[in-house]
C-alpha cells in the first residue's frame, strides 16, 4: 500500500475536523482527504468530469495543500499549492475537495 493512501487514512482516523477547500483562507495548510465531483449544485461539467479534472491536476487524496493567495473580489479564485504544483481554481470547484486542515 502506498503512503499516499495511508496519509489520507491517518487523517480520517484522527477524526480532526475536515472542511471543503472552498472555505479555506490564505495561509492555511492541510491534507486532501476526499475528492468528490458531486458538489450538490449544478456545474458546467458533469460531476464525474469535474472529479477527473481535479484528479488530473493533482488534487488527489493524500496530497498536501497550502492556500497561497486569494483574489480581491469575494476572495476568489484561489491559488493553491498541491504538493509541488501551484494551481489556480475557483471556490466553486474547490467545494469538491475536502481537506483536513492542520491545527
Amino acid at each position: 500500500m502506498s503512503d499516499a493512501v495511508l496519509t489520507a487514512d491517518d487523517a480520517i482516523a484522527s477524526d480532526a475536523p475536515t472542511r471543503a477547500l472552498s472555505t479555506a483562507s490564505r495561509g492555511e495548510t492541510g491534507v486532501i482527504v476526499a475528492v468528490r465531483g458531486d458538489t450538490g449544485v449544478a456545474e458546467a461539467v458533469a460531476s464525474d468530469e469535474l472529479e477527473r479534472r481535479l484528479l488530473e491536476m493533482g488534487f488527489v487524496e493524500g496530497a498536501r495543500i497550502e492556500i497561497l493567495q486569494e483574489g480581491l473580489f469575494g476572495r476568489d479564485p484561489i491559488a493553491v499549492r498541491v504538493d509541488d504544483t501551484r494551481v489556480a481554481l475557483r471556490r466553486r470547484e474547490a467545494r469538491a475537495v475536502t481537506v483536513q486542515f492542520d491545527g
Binding site: 491559488a79 501551484r86 481554481l89 466553486r92
Partner: peptide, 10 residues
C-alpha cells in the same frame, strides 16, 4: 448555466 471550471497550473 454555470461557468466552465477554472483550473490552471501557475
Amino acid at each position: 448555466g454555470a461557468a466552465e471550471p477554472l483550473m490552471m497550473e501557475l
